[in-house]
Computed example of a mutant assay.
Amino acid sequence: MKPVASLAAALSLAITLPAAAQTDAQTASEPITIGTSHRVTTHGSERRINVILPPGYAQSGEEYPLVLILDGGQGQDLFMAVGINRWNGLWGRSQEAIIVGIETVDRQRELLPKTRNTEEQERYPTAGEAEQFRAWLVGEILPMLRAQYRDDGRAFLIGESAAGHFVAETWAEQPGSFTGYAALSPSFQWDEQSLSLRFANMPAMDRPPLFVSLADEGGTTEEGAMRFIAAAGPSACFADRRETHVKHSNTLHQLLPEALQFLLPTTADWLEEYGMSVHCDSSVAQ
């Protein structure tokens, strides 16, 4: 059937559909509710903390880990993260969790420290308040979540790009803030690679698990990443994807399922058979 004829047939069907059937279809509809938004204010801006509970939360009485997704606004990465988490759950790839989307408003201001690089200063003049944002996140938001939801005491922090730098910096400087971390394609070039240079000179210590990835960034981003990873030790899983189809632009899409599997593993014994493995390159670690 030609497209025009198909459209005409569809319009004819809509016109001739009995009025009762149309009414029934309308009254049978209902909104889809997936979570709760908490309005909070920090850094001079109102934002939302979006909480999506796992299926069966209300009936089970069980406790769940918290997974905090930076850049987790409704117009940011929230829905993708929720979808990937649910998809992981269908396969038994990672444990069920309470997904918490942390909305950012001025990402560079909130997620990155100050920079000495003139070009970065000119491009992102408001950057530099990551320490204050971290104190707010750990000191105010985590207690709020634990007071309102049934968590099991574990909390994980995940971020990509500038948010990945925030995650890696938190793991390096305040490792006890969270149970585990995932820094996807972190912006290790920031401030003349200062994070990796500083971390390379820190004394060795036991740290929580860290999933850290590198894609096609190259240049000073890669230099900083390799220095950071070399000093990270055995608690870090280095997802080296420089030679694969993973790009900086699709890192979160490609690697969030694997990061969740690394941080929240299950006992499922079929995952490798279906290509759902965690691939860590240990050749760089010292």
Rank of each mutant, 00 (worst) to 15 (best):
F79Q: 10
I229R: 09
I32Q: 15
P65M: 03
A225K: 03
L256K: 04
F199C: 08
G224W: 02
L11Q: 13
F188C: 05
L264V: 02
A200S: 10
P186C: 04
V278T: 02
E122N: 08
E169S: 02
G75E: 06
L157T: 00
T23Y: 14
A259R: 00
I99L: 10
D71K: 07
H165L: 15
L66P: 09
G89P: 06
H165Y: 15
P125N: 08
T267C: 05
V82Q: 15
I99G: 01
T23A: 15
F228Q: 08
F166A: 01
P55T: 06
I141G: 06
L184W: 04
A147C: 12
E131R: 02
A182V: 06
P3S: 05
W190N: 05
P3D: 12
I52A: 13
G176C: 07
G180P: 01
T115I: 14
H248C: 02
G73N: 07
I141P: 12
N117G: 06
W91Q: 05
S187K: 03
G61C: 14
I229K: 11
A183F: 00
G219K: 05
V105R: 09
W190I: 04
P125C: 02
A19P: 10
Q286G: 15
Q148D: 14
Q254E: 13
S29W: 14
H43M: 11
Q26H: 08
S283Q: 05
T27F: 11
Q121D: 13
H245T: 14
Q26M: 13
A127R: 13
R39N: 02
Q22L: 15
M144F: 14
L17K: 11
F166I: 05
S187E: 06
L7H: 03
V4P: 00
T41G: 00
I34G: 01
T267F: 07
D77E: 13
G233D: 03
A155N: 00
R93C: 01
H253C: 03
T244I: 11
S277N: 07
L214A: 11
S60P: 11
E119W: 01
N50L: 06
P54L: 07
S161P: 01
M202R: 14
G92P: 07
L184V: 03
A172K: 00
S185V: 11
E160T: 07
Y57H: 08
L263S: 07
S282L: 14
H245C: 10
L210E: 03
S277A: 09
D106F: 09
L271Q: 04
Q26V: 13
D281T: 03
A232E: 04
N85E: 12
E129N: 12
G159W: 06
I84H: 01
F211P: 12
T118R: 14
E30S: 15
G159D: 02
G180Q: 00
E243N: 14
T115N: 15
A10D: 11
L210Y: 07
P31E: 04
G128Q: 07
T23F: 13
K2Q: 11
